[in-house]
């Protein structure tokens, strides 16, 4: 299922991440483990990312973006499915292999006020990964730290070495967090809404920095946001997530110009534009997605979908190729299986 021309650095196949629903001790005693219910945070997603390319994941809050990201860096273990990183499935790595994986895959977290240890100064934050991964010489470490600070635009670096998180602005903190992700020179970085906590005027700087770094350092990148305008700015490919599944994925231009899945259309139309349009605000969707514990039968978007058909309440749609590396999970675009292989429904 590799649809990228270049060889994928990271390939995710039918990944599921389910969390047990916590029940009271009483219920557990009565029911035992039989009644165990699951939060299906990620429920069968597949995608791949190549070096030098960036994949975006967009969707409402609660659709499983963060869970996906954290699983890719093995903060969570996949429940089922594969996460193949440079040819190795990381699902059950341990020991030395896990350490080696950690050297190469990094994450930038959402909240720069939470993602830096309040008791570590910048130098300590950036040196820690180097120490862990066995860079013994203090001189070498310092040189790498300085170089990385320079890369993320915290110049002159010597000024920042001894600063603590509370002595820096939100933008500077996020730059430090990015520097920490880069200090090991990883080959893959996933950024989970890295600018949502930042003032809009400094977002541009952080976005440009990440864009540049992914390109210049030839990394594979992932960018997560609920705001498609940011995804559009950052990513080559875009996946739209709903309740744990990617309902549409394709080249960003295609998805943004002409979204096919009704949910993708809704998500797109909710994005405010900075131009004065004199259009009324459209309400793309009512309510909020249901809890990913009790999923409706058939299409999981069905209950909120304006174009629901009879089949949607019964049959769960499968991913369908619609050409140009684009896949949609929706009965509106139903085809016979071999049609899907041959046909190139372009994006006219």
């Amino acid at each position: 299922m590799t649809w990228d021309q270049r060889a994928a650095l990271l390939e995710v196949k039918d990944l599921k991440v389910h969390f047990p629903v916590r029940t009271s001790l009483m219920t557990q005693m009565v029911q035992g483990n039989r009644g165990q219910r699951w939060v299906k945070a990620v429920d069968g997603v597949s995608f791949s990312v190549a070096r030098g390319r960036t994949l975006g994941l967009a969707g409402e809050s609660g659709c499983g973006k963060t869970t996906t990201a954290k699983t890719l860096v093995r903060l969570y273990r996949p429940t089922t499915g594969q996460v193949v990183f440079e040819g190795t499935d990381i699902a059950n790595l341990g020991g030395r292999e896990l350490t080696s994986f950690r050297h190469r895959a990094q994450m930038v977290f959402q909240d720069p006020y939470e993602s830096l240890n309040p008791r570590f100064n910048v130098q300590a934050v950036l040196e820690e990964p180097l120490v862990i991964h066995g860079m013994k010489s203090a001189k070498e470490r310092l040189a790498r730290v300085m170089e990385t600070l320079e890369i993320v635009g915290l110049t002159p670096p010597s000024v920042y070495l001894s600063r603590f998180p509370h002595q820096m602005s939100g933008g500077q903190r996020q730059r430090v967090a990015i520097a920490r992700a880069l200090v090991l020179r990883p080959s893959f970085v996933v950024a989970d809404e890295p600018v949502s906590m930042l003032d809009v005027s400094i977002r541009a700087g952080i976005l440009n920095l990440m864009k540049q770094l992914i390109r210049n350092m030839n990394m594979a990148g992932m960018y997560i946001s609920h705001d498609l305008s940011l995804i559009r700015y950052m990513c080559d490919r875009t996946g739209i997530m709903y309740l744990g599944r990617i309902v549409e994925i394709g080249e960003t231009d295609d998805v943004v110009r002409k979204p096919m899945h009704p949910y993708a259309q809704a998500l797109l139309s909710a994005v405010p534009v900075p131009e004065v349009t004199h259009e009324e605000i459209k309400v793309p969707l009512e309510g909020e997605p249901p809890n990913p514990v009790d999923l409706p039968p058939g299409c999981r978007f069905g209950p909120r979908c304006g174009r629901r058909m009879d089949i949607c309440t019964r049959v769960e749609p499968r991913p369908m190729a619609v050409g140009n590396g684009r896949w949609v999970e929706c009965h509106l675009y139903r085809q016979t299986p071999d049609q899907a292989d041959q046909e190139m429904v372009g994006n006219e």
Binding site: V200, S201, I202, R203, A204, G205, L207, N208, L228, S229, L230, R232, Y233, V256, L268, V271, V273, P274, E275, V276
Partner: peptide, 28 residues
């Protein structure tokens, strides 16, 4: 927003991505 006359407003406008129209480089 159409014809900003303060440099700060002009700067703000450059910093916002849009989902419509041509892709453009953001400047903070």
């Amino acid at each position: 927003f159409g014809e900003p006359c303060h440099p700060y407003t002009m700067g703000l406008r450059n910093a916002f991505p849009s989902i419509r129209g041509e892709w453009y480089e953001l400047v903070s």
